[in-house]
Design a protein around this nucleic acid. Sequence first.
RNA 1: GGAGAUGUCGCAUAGUGGCCUAGUGCGCCCGCCUGCUAAGCGGGUUGAGGUUCAAACCUCUCGAGGGUUCAAAUCCCUCCAUCUCCGCCA
Length: 421
Amino acid sequence: MIDARLLRDDPEFLREAQRRRGESTDVVDALIEADQRRRSAIAAFEQARSQQKELGKQIPRAQGEEKQELLARTKELSAQVKAAEAEQGEAGERFTELLKALPNPASPQAPPGGEDDFVVLETVGTPRDFAAEGFAPQDHLDIGRRLGAFDIERGVKVSGSRFYFLTGVGAQLELALTQLAMSRAAEWGFTPMITPALVRPQAMEGTGFLGQAADDVYHLERDDLYLVGTSEVALAAFHSDEILEGDVPKRYAAFSPCFRREAGSHGKDTRGIFRVHWFDKVEMFVYTTLEESEAEHERLLGWEKQWLDDLEVPYRVIDVAAGDLGLSAVRKFDCEAWIPSQERYREVSSASNCTQFQARRLDSRLRTGDGTVAAATLNGTLCAMTRTIIALLENGQQADGSVRLPAVLHPFLGEVLEPVA
RNA sequence: GGAGAUGUCGCAUAGUGGCCUAGUGCGCCCGCCUGCUAAGCGGGUUGAGGUUCAAACCUCUCGAGGGUUCAAAUCCCUCCAUCUCCGCCA
């Protein structure tokens, strides 16, 4: 949700923001109209209510005929109040509905355009030259099979397409990555968290996932609970309806499973565990001030890069274009790891600055000198397990089918994963 | 899952339809008094929205949302949360 004052103060800014995302400006005009209707409805209600209260005070003191007279008049007024209240409620609801549908205005720094208009900010590391090494790189599915790292067929048997079992070194890899990521985050000052994977509608709605992304979300109808697609949802709702006392930033790092319906992605990335309905992830989440949010966004990106550096995987960082930002972010940096079998970079992590968009919906505020203001929230992937495992297997693979691991994982799994059987 | 109880201002409590514009105590903040401290005295102390240069004022807010009534903290319904007991379970 954006700041409603922008509508009155600077509607042209909002129209421009919509254009930058490649979306219609009609919603801005509809909002201005809805806001006017809402405000006059509120004024009408308050006036009627005030009169009613005034009369109501006289009733207990009045006697006989005078009292009857008052009762009759106030009864009439009561009907007016009720009508005004209904109008106020309806107008308010319509306004909020429209307001919630309006995306967070993209940062002027976000590149204009859509999905393909990202800007590459930097490229780190050099992809291996497998031709020079004298063998063709296998994809993660073949490598993983030989290592006994996962079992796709049985995943499909048990849970359906886009499910898997992590087995043997695959399971160990996830546990090692989890342990490493959580302790790294703790060193950086994040509070370690393990968060609920099922959340109420408010939490899902408040983070903006029931907007244009609603089809991608699992919903348990019987209990009206949602399966989170990221622990961002639970972490954003963690301080909902709260005024944060004490210092910001508040930094949390959460481990949780993530569930995604992957609606509309039929036939895309069907091989292996690249695009799945469930995976586990360690996510970073920060509450801070609006003023600090840009700097914090850079810090989040910095930590993500440090993580990928440690994993010794070549990657690049892209600045996602305005039209591809989703509802709540003003700017988003993705880290994409080099995937040798596909000969391209693929997303492994993502850092978003949501400014006050989520905090306004979820009512997370900061106390200031005078009054309170909505907090700014940011989120960034530290380690999405399945895609990280893919990057490690493919980039570390050797001609004999073994996989060389980065130094940070040696204490957990040794230097090399050897094929089984 | 079954039975019952409870939810009021930071905390504790009062309040069973109109004089509640929610009282009181504690805590906290500001001031006075006091050579320190404590005590004492006076004032303030939920949040949101609106009008306004501002001061000030108005509306809403007694777990949330509906309803009854001229009028709801108070009566009714639904939901949420907490506690006790039983059942079940990791």
